[in-house]
C-alpha cells in the first residue's frame, strides 16, 4: 500500500465496479448494495483489504458489484471459502453474502459451523423467503402453505427462523434488518465493527417471485405496529403511538400489552444484548402469531476469533519448541547413519 493510498478517503462510488448490476428492476438487493457501499466508505474500509465471498443465488451476485476483491463461489459454501480467506490472512475484512436457500438449505451446515467457530466474518443473509434464481420454488423460510411452482398445493415444510439458528449455533453477533429500512445502515456498521462472526438477516423483497412478502415490515403506515426496534437496556416498546410493549406473562411466555393503567414500562422486558435466552425468545416472535418482529441487534458478546486462536497456537508451539527448520523436521529422532 502506498502512502497516498493509505490516506485517501474513499466514498461510496469508489466501491462500485464497472459491471452492470443485473438484478431485476425493483429488487431489494439494490438497496442493500447501496447501503453496503456507503458503509464501506463510512468505516474507512480499503478496497484492497476487503473481500466479498458468496455462494449461489441472486444475492450471491453481490461480489460482482463491489469494487473490492470478490469470490462468487459455489452453492452454500461461502462460509467455508471465507474461513479459508481469514485463515490465510486475518487482516482482511471479509463479508459473506448469502440467501435463505444458499445459507439455510444447501449451506446450512457451513453456516452453523462458521458461527460456532466465531471466524471474524460478517455474514449477510438476504431472506426473501423464495428461490429467486431458479424461478420461484419455496425456500426454508417460506411460510407453511406457500403455493409455488414446486408446491402447487402449498408447502408442507415448516419454515425456520434464521436467527434462532444463529443463536443456537453460538453466534457472537445476531441482528435483523430490512432492505429498505433506514436502520440497515446502522446494523451493517455495527456488524462491521464487531470482532467475530456477525450474522445479519435482511428481509429482502423479491419483487418478481415473492413480492410484498414483507409488506408488514416496510409499509410506512403499518410497520411501526409490526416491528419492534431493539435498544440495549431499553424497555421493548413499539407501535405508532409507542403505547405497546412486550412482557413475560405468568407462564414466562411473551405477550403484547398496552401501556396504561396496570401496565408500566418497568413491567416490560428490557433488552439485553448479552442475554442469549432473550435473543432466542426474540427470534421466535412472528408477525403471523400477532407479535411485532424485533429489528436491530438481538445479541452481541465478545469472544475470541477463530483465526486469531489458530495463530496463537502457532505462537505457543513456537515458543515451546522454537520455529521449525527443515533439518529438524526430517531428523526427528529415530534416524541412523549409513557410512
Amino acid at each position: 500500500m502506498t502512502a497516498s493510498n493509505a490516506v485517501s478517503i474513499l466514498n461510496a462510488k469508489d466501491f462500485a465496479t464497472s459491471n452492470d448490476v443485473r438484478w431485476c428492476p425493483g429488487c431489494g438487493d439494490y438497496a442493500i448494495l447501496n447501503q453496503m457501499r456507503k458503509v464501506c466508505a463510512a468505516i474507512g474500509a480499503r478496497r484492497e483489504n476487503t473481500v466479498f465471498v458468496s455462494g449461489i443465488g441472486c444475492s450471491s451476485r453481490f461480489p460482482y458489484y463491489m469494487g473490492t476483491y470478490g469470490f462468487h463461489s459455489i452453492h452454500g459454501r461461502a462460509p467455508a471459502v471465507a474461513t479459508g480467506v481469514k485463515l490465510a490472512n486475518p487482516e482482511l475484512d471479509v463479508w459473506v453474502v448469502t440467501g435463505d436457500g444458499d445459507g439455510l438449505s444447501i449451506g446450512g451446515n457451513h453456516l452453523m459451523h462458521v458461527l460456532r467457530r466465531n471466524v471474524n466474518l460478517k455474514i449477510l443473509l438476504f431472506n426473501n423467503r423464495i428461490y429467486g434464481l431458479t424461478k420461484g420454488q419455496y425456500s426454508p423460510t417460506s411460510e407453511e402453505g406457500k403455493k409455488t411452482k414446486s408446491s402447487p398445493m402449498g408447502s408442507i415444510d415448516l419454515p425456520l427462523s434464521p436467527l434462532s439458528i444463529a443463536v443456537a449455533a453460538e453466534a457472537s453477533f445476531v441482528a435483523r434488518t430490512v432492505d429498505v429500512d433506514r436502520d440497515l445502515n446502522r446494523v451493517l456498521t455495527e456488524a462491521a465493527n464487531h470482532q467475530g462472526s456477525a450474522f445479519v438477516e435482511i428481509y429482502q423483497d423479491c419483487n418478481v417471485f415473492n413480492h410484498k412478502a414483507f409488506d408488514y415490515a416496510t409499509d410506512k403506515d403499518a410497520k411501526l405496529d409490526n416491528l419492534l426496534y431493539l435498544e440495549h437496556g431499553k424497555p421493548m416498546i413499539f407501535g405508532k403511538q409507542r403505547d405497546k410493549g412486550i412482557r413475560l406473562n405468568g407462564s414466562r411466555k411473551p405477550e403484547v400489552v398496552t401501556l396504561g393503567p396496570g401496565v408500566r414500562e418497568d413491567d416490560l422486558l428490557f433488552h439485553d444484548e448479552s442475554d442469549e435466552s432473550m435473543a432466542f425468545l426474540l427470534s421466535r416472535l412472528r408477525h403471523t402469531d400477532g407479535f411485532p418482529e424485533p429489528m436491530g441487534i438481538y445479541y452481541r458478546v465478545k469472544d475470541d476469533c477463530y483465526e486469531r486462536l489458530v495463530e496463537q497456537q502457532i505462537a505457543t508451539a513456537r515458543s515451546a519448541r522454537g520455529p521449525g527448520t527443515l533439518e529438524a523436521l526430517f531428523d526427528d529422532g529415530n534416524t541412523y547413519e549409513v557410512p
Binding site: 473481500v51 465471498v53 469470490f71 463461489s73 459455489i74 459454501r77 462460509p79 467455508a80 471459502v81 471465507a82 474461513t83 479459508g84 480467506v85 481469514k86 485463515l87 490465510a88 490472512n89 482482511l92 451446515n109 457451513h110 452453523m112 459451523h113 489458530v310 497456537q313 502457532i314 505457543t316 508451539a317 513456537r318 515451546a320 519448541r321 522454537g322 520455529p323 521449525g324 523436521l329
Partner: peptide, 26 residues
C-alpha cells in the same frame, strides 16, 4: 504447528476443500 502450519478440521469434506480454495485465493 511450530513450522507455521495451520490445520483446519472442517465440518465436512466440502468445507475442507472450499476452505483450501479460500486459502489459495488469498
Amino acid at each position: 504447528k511450530h513450522y507455521g502450519v495451520k490445520t483446519f478440521q472442517a465440518e465436512d469434506e466440502i468445507a475442507a476443500v472450499c476452505a483450501a480454495i479460500g486459502v489459495s485465493f488469498t
